[in-house]
Computed example of a mutant assay.
Amino acid sequence: MNKCILVVIQITCAPTQHLKTLNPHLDHAAFDAFYSNEHCPYMYNAGHCQVSSFGVGGTNGHAIFWGEARKPIVDVKQKLLVKVMNSAPPIIADGPDPADWEYSGPPFDLKDGEKCSITYWKDPVTGDEEVRFDRQLKAIAAPAEFYCTSGNHNDWTDDRMVEGDRPGLFFQEVEIPDSGRLEFRILADGEHDRSIGPEETTESRSVPIIGPGSDVRTSWIATGRPGDLMRIEYMTTQGPSGGAGLQSVSWFPVEA
């Protein structure tokens, strides 16, 4: 009971003493519980704690304690920011050339828009603290092996395009739907999360192209007589690549 009182006064979950390993003979997956082995502050400024007592003779007791914090809630993000700002990263000078020195602080050549991951580590034995900055590199899309069209001519599934006689050229001849309106976009490797389309749904060939990406939902619109064939051509200067490069899309009717 004393432990519960201290918990609701401090609004901090107290650890279970001497807990190192859970009993492997108990089905922990069937009992949704969290076993704390360190102090964990509550998410809110108030909370409750409960304790049960089971008597040998069959008499059971259960007590519920509720309390409100007597101290302000700690802004963990702000404290981490202060700690990072006050922790000067060490510089290990290995040789006369500064390019060979070891340095774990923010990169000097960090550009606008680039991000770093910050790692804070404290040695449990010596108490030494270390803050490390690592540049987050942008993931490079894997090159596409082929391209497909997706539109109202194939119920927005995927039909593989044919490689043209020039590097980076892909084409397909599709039939104009009964509405006389053909809507389509391009899929890298036939994957809808690597869609390529215009910046906005349009009938123009000059609108900037976006993608590949999972958030591309726009399409090109071509009109014609229902049943006629329309040739769609996709050109990329990077060849069969899923990365962003110079791209163009064109279409024109196929003469009978």
Rank of each mutant, 00 (worst) to 15 (best):
Ser117Met: 13
Ser117Cys: 12
Ser117Pro: 10
Ile118Phe: 12
Ile118Cys: 15
Ile118His: 15
Ile118Leu: 15
Ile118Tyr: 13
Ile118Trp: 13
Thr119Lys: 14
Thr119Cys: 11
Tyr120His: 12
Tyr120Phe: 13
Trp121His: 06
Trp121Lys: 13
Trp121Ser: 08
Lys122Ala: 04
Asp123Ile: 03
Asp123Gly: 08
Pro124His: 08
Pro124Ile: 05
Pro124Asn: 11
Thr126Phe: 14
Gly127Phe: 11
Gly127Glu: 11
Asp128Glu: 11
Asp128Val: 06
Asp128Trp: 08
Asp128Pro: 03
Asp128Leu: 10
Glu129His: 10
Glu130Lys: 06
Glu130Thr: 14
Glu130His: 13
Glu130Met: 11
Glu130Phe: 06
Val131Met: 09
Val131Ser: 07
Val131Phe: 10
Val131Tyr: 06
Val131Asp: 07
Val131Trp: 10
Arg132Ala: 09
Arg132Asn: 13
Arg132Tyr: 04
Phe133Val: 14
Phe133Cys: 12
Asp134Gln: 13
Asp134His: 12
Asp134Tyr: 13
Arg135Ile: 15
Arg135Ala: 09
Arg135Leu: 14
Gln136Asn: 10
Leu137Trp: 01
Leu137Cys: 00
Lys138Asp: 12
Ala139Arg: 15
Ala139Gln: 15
Ala139Ser: 15
Ile140Phe: 01
Ile140Lys: 07
Ile140Tyr: 04
Ala141Arg: 14
Ala141Asp: 11
Ala142His: 01
Ala142Val: 03
Ala142Phe: 08
Ala142Trp: 05
Ala142Arg: 02
Pro143Gln: 00
Pro143Asp: 03
Glu145Asn: 09
Glu145Tyr: 01
Phe146Cys: 05
Phe146Lys: 10
Tyr147Glu: 11
Cys148Thr: 15
Cys148Met: 07
Cys148Ile: 13
Cys148Ala: 15
Thr149Met: 07
Ser150Gln: 12
Ser150Asp: 09
Ser150Arg: 12
Gly151Cys: 06
Gly151Ser: 05
Gly151Asn: 08
Asn152Arg: 03
Asn152Trp: 05
His153Asn: 02
Asn154Ile: 05
Asn154His: 14
Asn154Cys: 12
Asn154Leu: 04
Asn154Val: 11
Asp155Arg: 09
Asp155Pro: 04
Thr157Leu: 02
Thr157Gln: 09
Asp158Phe: 09
Asp158Trp: 08
Asp159Ser: 03
Asp159Pro: 04
Arg160Thr: 03
Met161Ala: 01
Glu163Met: 00
Glu163Gln: 02
Glu163Arg: 05
Glu163Ser: 05
Gly164Ala: 03
Asp165Trp: 04
Asp165Tyr: 00
Arg166Thr: 03
Arg166Pro: 01
Pro167Cys: 00
Gly168Met: 00
Leu169Lys: 03
Leu169Glu: 02
Leu169Gln: 00
Phe170Met: 08
Phe171Ser: 01
Phe171Thr: 06
Phe171Asn: 02
Gln172Tyr: 06
Gln172Gly: 01
Gln172Thr: 03
